[in-house]
Design a binder for these strands. Structure first.
Length: 592
RNA sequence: GGGGUCUUAGCUCAAUUGGUUAGAGCGUCGGCCUGUCACGCCGAAGGUUGCGGGUUCAAGUCCCGUAGAUCCCGCCA
């Protein structure tokens, strides 16, 4: 071994020992005679002292080092004088007296400062181009180490629960629904393609048919869609499937899993079971199927308050079957009018006529363009229902519920973010259950909200014939701090019911066969009742790490356009490679 | 596909109403310095103001186009 200890290992216990350290030069402080080197590796930082009076040769070599040189230092551990202890680093009580310094490798000057504070401000593009240097920073390493700890915790817990990790293929079959597939041309049979999996959905169900009973996988998934701060073209899911279970069993497992992940990430163990609410309740109270429960400002229905109102706008909405709802943004009366103007634009884009508001002055008077239309009793009822106090800002929306809820849900988040009231360092989980089985497209067609193998709630099965839009599914999301962490369902294992689903979804026999034939065939051979979930591992890591983008917890992430700035991928390939896989390019005219 | 923001030295930024030779801190290089820990002090080098065009006596600054980055909408069963 080239080293006896790491740069984070030495303490006062080692004083007097002869040791060898290796690492990167973090800083050199040259006093003309005596010279200090902060030596850094993954484990920490240790101060090396080179005094020409101790070893002229070592001091000479040390003098020629520069930041990011890789060196080996042999020497003796010495306690620092009491007034020279550095309390900010773990090894601050000792220093290594350099008796021999060897330069293992030199380094060019990095293109950006690796110093934590400064690096945090550098354009991400530049850091990504030289990600291997960015990775030397402790904060980046912390993210990857956290991710590792999480993965270990997941595997340990799932193993204890009798789950088997099974790898499913990366080269698989294209499924035209859902996200766009990444395609891989097949050399052997010209004109055919593999697709990279968007998720191991069908494989995991086939594993249940195969009797694996409990399956999980840290599964890499690929989706060729436009990216976001929390979305990469390739990402990792904790994929889970179980046989002979109902949703309660699944909640139990995932509750336990998330508790272990929280602990492994250095956070408090959440109280179990994790809270639950129905999809309907989430939409009604928070205007979102992924409610952020870290703050209040809930949506409140005012239909009863304004049932008899003379205010025409509200009366007309109620008459046409719409709803009137409001949120009380506590203490936000002082918000500038230009914010309200901005939100009015948002309101109109969601189909509202406008955005009504009340700003409650400190003296208790209500400043609002609409209050003058309210009856005295309505004002009082409103005050009581929304607990209106001086300093509050009340925002109204009146329209059809399907427009009001999403709008107020978005407004609630915007206003809370603007006010800066969302507490940091809190973790508020919730299950959202009983998702609708279908949603209606603009063209009036029914499509699966989750996927076509999702089972309807047994008591809602009769509605499939009469009012399919009202059917609730045994489908659920797990949500943390307003972020959808994962999504799953209990699957259909009854071929007759599955057939009915395809009829409702207007899937033709042909499509059925080409897209799901293998799965349908398998389900006919004694498929056990089963269900599962997939959790976004990168997103979970991001939330545990408290970072800003998913790129913070991925070693080599791609940018917003799916480009790996370091490798410069994707790239063109040469004609021979294209010829081998029988591909001819047909590029748009602007590409030269 | 659409919208917002950004692009000036290696890095982070500044530059008045369009007006002299585009500045600062950090970093880099050289010199000095024997207890610092973001060491200190002295000095130096370093610029096609993303790129292309236009307006003007004069453009980092105004206009048009374009490239790249980033965030959002659409999209992501």
């Amino acid at each position: 071994m080239k080293r006896s200890h790491t740069c984070g290992a030495l303490t006062s216990e080692h004083v007097g020992q002869a040791v060898t350290l290796c690492g990167w030069v973090d800083t050199v402080r040259d006093h003309g005679g005596i010279l200090f080197i902060d030596l850094r590796d993954r484990y920490g930082m240790t101060q090396v002292v080179c005094d020409p009076d101790d070893s002229a040769a070592a001091a000479e070599v040390a003098k020629s080092t520069r930041p990011e040189f890789v060196i080996q230092v042999k020497g003796t551990v010495r306690a620092r004088p009491a007034d020279m202890v550095n309390a900010r680093i773990a090894t601050g009580g000792i220093e290594l007296v350099g008796e021999s310094v060897t330069i293992l490798n030199t380094s060019k000057t990095p293109p950006f400062p690796l110093d934590e504070d400064k690096a945090a401000k550098v354009h991400e593009e530049l850091r990504m181009e030289s990600r291997y240097l960015d990775l030397r920073r402790a904060s980046v390493q912390r993210g990857l180490i956290l991710r590792h700890k999480m993965a270990i915790a997941v595997r340990k817990f799932m193993d204890e629960q009798e789950f088997i990790e099974v790898e499913t293929p990366i080269l698989t079959k294209s499924t035209p629904e859902g996200a766009r597939d990444y395609l891989v041309p097949n050399r052997v049979t010209p004109g055919t393609f593999y697709a990279l999996p968007q998720a191991p959905q069908q494989y995991k169900q086939l594993l249940m048919v195969g009797g694996m009973d409990r399956y999980f996988q840290l599964a890499r998934c690929f989706r060729d869609e436009d990216l976001r701060a929390d979305r990469q073209p390739e990402f990792t899911q904790i994929d889970v499937e179980m046989s002979f279970v109902d949703e309660e069993d699944l909640y139990g497992i995932i509750d336990g899993l998330l508790a272990e992940v929280m602990v492994a990430s250095g956070h408090p163990r959440p109280e179990l079971p994790l809270p639950r609410m129905s999809w309907h309740e989430a939409m009604d109270r928070f205007g979102s199927d992924k409610p952020d429960l870290r703050f209040g400002w809930e949506l409140t229905s005012l239909a009863d308050v304004f049932a008899e109102t003379e205010f025409k706008v509200f009366a007309n909405v109620l008459k046409s079957g719409g709803v009137i709802k409001a949120i009380n943004c506590k203490g936000q009366a002082g918000i500038p009018i230009r914010m309200i103007d901005e939100w009015t634009v948002l309101a109109k884009s969601h189909g509202m006529g406008g955005l009504a508001y009340i700003r409650v002055q400190e003296d208790g008077t209500w400043k609002s363009p609409i209050v003058k239309f309210f009856a005295e009793a309505e004002v009082e009822a409103l005050r009581a229902k929304l607990s209106v106090e001086p300093g509050d800002l009340v925002l109204f929306a009146a329209e059809q519920a399907k427009n009001v809820d999403p709008f107020l849900g978005k407004l609630r988040l915007e206003a809370a973010n603007h006010a800066g009231i969302i507490p940091k360092g809190e973790f508020k989980f919730t299950w959202v259950t009983e998702f609708p089985l279908f949603e209606e497209t603009d063209a009036g067609r029914l499509v699966s909200m989750h996927h076509p193998f999702t089972t309807p709630k047994p008591e809602d099965v009769p509605l499939l014939d009469t009012d399919p839009g009202k059917v609730r599914a045994v489908a659920y999301d797990i949500v943390l701090n307003g972020v959808e962490l994962g999504s799953g369902s209990i699957r259909i294992h009854d071929p007759a019911l599955q057939g009915k689903m395809f009829d409702l979804l207007k899937v033709s026999e042909e499509e059925k066969e080409s897209r799901f034939g293998h799965l349908l065939k398998a389900l006919a051979y004694g498929a056990p009742p089963h269900g599962g979930i997939a959790l976004g591992f990168d997103r979970l890591a991001l939330l545990m790490a408290g970072g800003k983008t998913i790129r913070d917890v991925i070693a080599f992430p791609k940018n917003h356009k799916g480009i790996d700035l370091m490798m410069d991928a994707p790239s063109t390939v040469d004609a021979k490679q294209l010829h081998d896989v029988h591909i001819q390019l047909d590029l748009p005219p602007e590409v030269e």
